[in-house]
Amino acid sequence: MNSIAALLAITCLFLLGSSRLLVSIRMVAFQGVLLGIMPLLAAGSHHLGMGAFALCLTNIGLKSILLPWLLRTALFTSGTRREIEPFIGFGASIMSGVVLLAISGYIVKRLETTAQLSSSITLIAGFFMVFTGLFLLITRRKALTQTLGFLVLENGVFTTGLSLGSEFSVYVELGILLDVFVGIFLMGIMLFHIDKEFDHLDVDRFNELSDLTIDVSETEEVSE
């Protein structure tokens, strides 16, 4: 359990540091496998039911086979290979990753005083993944990396829930999984459309809609 959590944290650091999108996709797929196994370990041998296995298989099938395949196809059609010039460089990203990890550790230390936690290492990993996801969403330019960031965020929420021991019934878990899957799937489809419409996947060059740019152009007219 703890070693899986550590592996999850390492994949996050990898994601923060890698510029090759294909590697990032593989890393996220690997996270999917780890997440699939985790509930089985968390439940212990005497709690294993059909539900847990179904959940594990669905998780792995969706998050580490189907979605990565879709994202890879999107990647190859768009002809993008690398994340170019993120707002925060790769080295700095890893450093921020370490800081974020420390922050997650600190938060969990504080939480331990108020609640009995089954596994604090997994909780740290969960928070760290949430932070990493948000970090990727904010600092990267490519729509594809944002999708990956969202997936990492979602994985982090899943890990957090697991380590807090808040168990819902299998139906709810499956529903959540399905929602996330369809969400990423739609994002994948939209990647194709973005590539076709804009000829690039750079989200920061999305500027058709903004109230602020309209204001700027107006003031320019006045000054002329």
Binding site: G183, L186, M190, H193, I194, V203, L209
Partner: peptide, 10 residues
Amino acid sequence: SLEAAWKYMI
């Protein structure tokens, strides 16, 4: 509309 949909989704 694509930009709006992407923003909305994310």
